[in-house]
Nucleic acid binder design. Structure first.
Lengths: 239, 239
DNA sequence: CGAGCCGTTGAGGGGATTCAAGCTCAGTGG
DNA sequence: CCACTGAGCTTGAATCCCCTCAACGGCTCG
């Protein structure tokens, strides 16, 4: 049984690194677990590449995924037939929570960048939750974060003129920048799906921001962003 | 200590009706509780009027609210300074879940119509949850529903031409219609905050739909909607 | 009865879309 | 080696939808 859908998440290349040594352990679901629970190694780490699906809408998953690195978008298709991104998930976030309730996924979850994620079986979580009461509290916190991310998305990404929306998107992507200061810059059509604008409009705005020095596009859907100028441009757009 | 904020929710006028006899009991949080837990009467019913706040952003509440009747909107103020509605809550929905985590409310919750709600103390829920394991599962289900409502809102209400968005709003309000077939029709400015359009545009579209027989505005923010014609108009807008 | 809020409608302008044409660039195969 | 191809990006021109500014009418309430 594949952990992921199309294609299955690659099996771990090296020996599993123990959860105790996980780089994001403080931020993830099992932060509150003791050494003895973690020693049982309840998760399965793996990688997947851009445009690969982690979750498929309508499918009843048997795993939830902790994102260790990379960026994932959650999207759905409207009655009108066009796909709309409803939120992003990044380092430390948990996706596929519906699986814990036996519900089908409400959205597609698609990797934007190379993604390192840990698959955690629903059964496993239920077993651990019966041992460690605080785990349920942690789960609720995850749900709340997702809810807040979705609300923020609709309040900030769907509001005001197109230029402001694009600036807001950059502001949201900036904290997920690589160690070398580059961040993921979506293809123009995807920007359109995120901000509800035409891809040509997205292209024009990117060009405009490039000329202003806010943004420097790089090959392979990457860019360098000047945080200073971005903040300045946002302040100007918000008045 | 007030159950609500400004002004406090009115105290129950009559003797409390027991939870066992609650009209929405099958749909609410305590659906799975047995008679003995409910006999302790853990909730406090009450009423509040239109434009009254149930929750205030930033405030750490000590209650969650089950909506027994009426409609509540959850809204927040963007960095730009305008208020945006992020979702609606109606009969059977639970608002203020963040309180269970000790977090401040992320949004204002404001009554759109007269609202009948039951305040449930956070302490009470925690006590009951330790007795009845399924309650935590129910809580997660509530969070998931809120998440789905927020995602649907951004996918459907923030997308496409203004006319389509208004039609989608009507479609969402239709199931909450009164027994006499009338439903709550927001003031034009509020339509703007929901759909991110100018209030004049909302007004023009309402007039247009009235002329098409889709909608008949009534006094006091009410309207009668022809479900048949609405569905037809939506189908035309979605092609 | 005037004040103020809300809704409606008009006129004009601007921002975004649509349609369309070139462009770069990577991959392919002759 | 290089034309060929197709996908993605950019830019232009025309159109249109929606916003802004404005005036006016109905209604409630002090």
């Amino acid at each position: 049984m594949p952990l992921l859908l199309t294609p299955p998440m690659a099996p771990p290349r090296a020996a599993r690194s123990p959860c105790q040594a996980c780089g994001v352990r403080e931020h993830v679901l099992f932060a509150s677990l003791g050494g003895e629970q973690l020693a049982q190694q309840p998760v399965r780490p793996g990688w997947t590449g851009p445009e690969q699906a982690l979750l498929a809408r309508g499918h009843r998953g048997r795993f939830v995924y902790t994102i260790r690195s990379g960026l994932v978008r959650l999207e759905r298709v409207t009655a009108r037939g066009d796909t709309r991104v409803v939120r992003l998930a990044g380092r430390g976030d948990l996706v596929g929570l519906e699986a814990l309730l036996g519900l089908p996924h409400a959205d597609d979850a698609v990797a934007c960048t190379p993604v390192e994620a840990c698959a955690i079986a629903v059964d496993e979580i239920e077993r651990l939750a019966s041992e460690v009461g605080s785990l349920r509290q942690d789960l609720m916190l995850r749900w709340q974060r997702s809810l807040d991310a979705a609300s923020s998305w609709s309040a900030e990404m769907c509001t005001g003129p197109a230029r402001r929306r694009l600036l807001k998107l950059l502001e949201m992507l900036l904290p997920h920048a690589d160690a070398d200061g580059t961040l993921w810059l979506p293809r123009r059509e995807l920007m359109g799906a995120m901000l509800d604008i035409a891809l040509e409009t997205a292209s024009r705005l990117v060009s405009q921001l490039r000329q202003e020095g806010v943004l420097e596009p790089l090959p392979r859907q990457a860019a360098r962003v000047d945080g200073e100028r971005l903040a300045h441009a946002l302040a100007a757009a918000d008045r």
